[in-house]
């Protein structure tokens, strides 16, 4: 039965003399490899160079703060519900008096953990978030020797208060809006 017209009939034909002595074949092989000697190398020397990533690359998550440095997250749990890999867990807590400068809403996430070994970086948490609190960024998740170190807590997810420790997501949000 012929499925495509690309099939090739195998012929076990007798080799010609030039093929039998192999040397021409070896020489042509040598020519091919020597050409590669002068080609551009494909290697990206990682720590010094990085592969260019798309502006909407989905990497290491960030939990955003607002302009006054308060955490946006209100621990509603929509991201955890949306997560197809069930990588997100959180514990909600009520904001005490005097913590208004830390958390924007009355409720906040006391514990917020993403298991980076489970995460598939689909970005559905970002889509689900009503408070613009979680975003995926173009930062790569670094490798590690220990599995437990891949459970990222708030220490690795929440951005800093100072302007130089903020994580820039403007490209991502604008890319979002243009859709």
């Amino acid at each position: 039965m012929q499925l495509t017209n690309r099939s090739k009939i195998v012929v076990n034909k007798e080799m010609t003399f030039a093929e039998k002595i192999y040397l021409p074949a070896i020489l042509s092989g040598l020519l091919i490899t020597i050409k590669h000697l002068f080609r551009k190398k494909v290697t990206i020397k990682y720590p010094e160079q990085t592969r260019p990533v798309a502006p909407i690359y989905r990497g290491w998550h960030v939990l955003k703060r607002d302009e006054q440095g308060r955490e946006n997250c209100t621990a509603c749990g929509l991201c955890a519900v949306a997560c197809p890999a069930e990588a997100i867990t959180m514990t909600a807590a009520e904001r005490k008096k005097g913590e208004e400068h830390l958390y924007r809403e009355e409720k906040y996430a006391a514990v917020y953990e993403i298991n980076m070994l489970r995460c598939i970086f689909c970005g559905l948490c970002e889509e689900a978030c009503p408070k613009e609190a979680i975003f995926l960024t173009d930062r790569m998740v670094p490798s590690d020797m220990v599995r437990s170190n891949f459970i990222f807590g708030k220490d690795k997810l929440v951005e800093g208060v100072e302007s130089n420790t903020r994580i820039d997501i403007s490209q991502r949000t604008t890319a979002h809006r243009h859709q």
Binding site: T33, I34, H36, L37, R39, K40, K41, V42, T43, K45
Partner: peptide
């Protein structure tokens, strides 16, 4: 190094 170069890589550096 030569193995790397012939395979378009960089080799030990």
């Amino acid at each position: 190094k030569i193995a790397a170069f012939l395979q378009d890589r960089v080799g030990p550096d």
